[in-house]
Design a protein around this nucleic acid. Structure first.
Length: 418
RNA sequence: GUGGGUGUGGCGCAAUGGCUAGCGCAUUAGACUGUGGCUCUAAGGGCUGCGGGUUCGAUCCCCGUCACCCACCCCA
């Protein structure tokens, strides 16, 4: 075929979909325990929503969005992330005027037109949470505890949680000015990219991986060391709450995020097995965003996990919940037996038992093989002899034990196993 | 967007400027006339990513293109 899935997108086949469902299931249970409720927002949004939240000069908005004009010439974009949509929905649906404080989670596809790489697709999927309506450091702590709990529940090991604080917008402006002053004499030693960043987004220089830049950055002041009293107190409280609750983390004073709306606490979870795209999740506070969009001023914090990246660091066997529910395969010999067995399928299925049959009149051996391959717990063998006696041979595939039972007792016997 | 690598049955990989493009796994069938996993035997399955060029002849060499992988970048 000459038509293929578009660049950076892929199919999730049933085998893999099992793992997806497991991740989503575990995530929903974990979120539920922490009081988060699902919210589903549209995949397309007004382009301005992203321009004004993520920031016009960020790479995401500048060159990675799927943007098009609809028939009325409105600029529409596929969402590159979910926080902006959720803040929009929070305000548009009046949550700021009602309960004020909400905990939302979401699961769904995001779109960024980047060059595909391992762990980086153009349509990728995120699982995330947003808690809106509080500035308490206990909320920061809870969200981080939730993040860590979720990763544990997913049996993911060996990750690192890094945290930092950027401070309030005023802190950030002061810090940017301070940083520019200190960096001014070093411009010649910084890479060309950082020279551009100096004007565009000074904070990013702290993040540069260039060896020469890193040496200079090492000597630079840190955001977390230049916080106002409130922000410093908030950050200190968060750290002590995390310690009191035994959550391991490491402080990374150079951690900055690429989206403009972040303020205060920021964090990132990385996994060493992922290579260069090593962030499996990240997030932070955005205490200014709700107000900025015209809502009632409210603190907020959230994170997002990349599902494809979670899968890369997950063990599919550990994810797959071992179901001990019976799964019955009907093996038949002869057309009369087949007809009878076909009718029995319905009886079992109506009672929630997974039941299967072959459609190609294969040999008994082939049917057994098929049953084995689909991990059936039982095979119900029905031949002309059994049919005449009104019995059926029930074989337990684990123990290889089989016994003849009355056909009408089949359902009862299987239900005993579930 | 930049640089490098790869592209061969469903999957993982060989091979050579020239005879019918091989192997492992998987699939199907048989050995075992009504019984899965192990073993053995056999069979089916390929426009060698796509397009062009060089050549008597290209899977191999060259150019383009597409896709994937790795790094940069960015980020989840």
């Amino acid at each position: 075929m000459d038509i293929k899935a578009v660049r950076g997108t892929k199919d999730i086949n049933p085998d893999e979909a099992d793992s997806w469902q497991a991740i989503e299931h575990i995530a929903r249970l974990t979120f539920g325990a922490y009081g988060f409720k699902e919210i589903r927002t549209p995949i397309i949004e007004d382009t301005n929503l992203f321009k004004r939240s993520i920031g016009e000069t960020t790479d995401i908005v500048e060159k990675e969005m799927y943007t098009f004009q609809d028939k009325k010439m409105r600029s529409i974009s596929l969402r590159p992330e979910a926080t902006a949509s959720i803040v929009r929905a929070y305000i548009e649906n009046g949550f700021d005027k009602k309960e004020g404080f909400v905990k939302f989670y979401y699961i769904g596809p995001m779109f960024r037109a980047e060059r595909p790489q391992k762990g980086r697709l153009r349509q990728f999927h995120q699982i995330g949470v947003e808690a809106i309506g509080s500035r308490s450091p206990f909320l920061d702590a809870e969200v981080l505890l939730l993040l860590s709990r979720l990763l544990n529940n997913l049996s993911i090991e060996g990750f690192t949680l890094k945290i930092n604080s950027l401070g309030c917008p005023a802190d950030r402006d002061n810090f940017k000015a301070l940083l520019r002053k200190k960096l001014k004499n070093h411009l010649k030693s910084l890479c060309t990219e950082c020279n551009r960043r100096f004007e565009k987004n000074v904070l990013r220089i702290l993040d540069c991986k260039e060896e020469s830049c890193r040496r200079i950055v090492k000597e630079m002041p840190k955001t977390a060391d230049n916080l106002c009293r409130d922000c410093d107190g908030h950050y200190a409280s968060l750290k002590s709450i995390l310690n009191e609750n035994s959550l391991g983390f490491s402080e990374d004073k150079d951690l900055v995020r690429g989206l403009d709306y972040y303020t205060g606490t920021v964090f990132e979870v990385t996994h060493p097995s992922l290579g260069s795209q090593d962030a499996i999740g990240a997030g932070g506070r955005y205490d200014n965003l709700i107000e900025q969009f015209g809502g009632k001023s409210a603190g907020a914090i959230g994170f997002a996990l990349g599902v494809e990246r979670l899968l890369l660091v997950s063990d599919p066997d550990k994810l797959r919940q071992k179901s001990d529910k019976p799964c019955v395969y009907f093996a038949t010999i002869g057309s009369e037996s087949y007809k009878a067995a076909f009718g029995l399928l319905e009886r079992l299925r109506a009672n929630g038992i997974s039941a299967h049959i072959d459609y190609e009149s294969k040999s008994l051996k082939a049917q057994m093989k098929q049953a084995d391959r689909m991990r059936a717990t039982h095979v119900a063998i029905l031949g002309e002899d059994e049919l005449k006696k009104g019995e059926i041979l029930l074989r337990d595939m684990k123990t290889s034990a089989q016994k003849s039972i009355k056909i009408e007792d089949l359902l009862k016997t299987l239900l005993k196993h579930s």
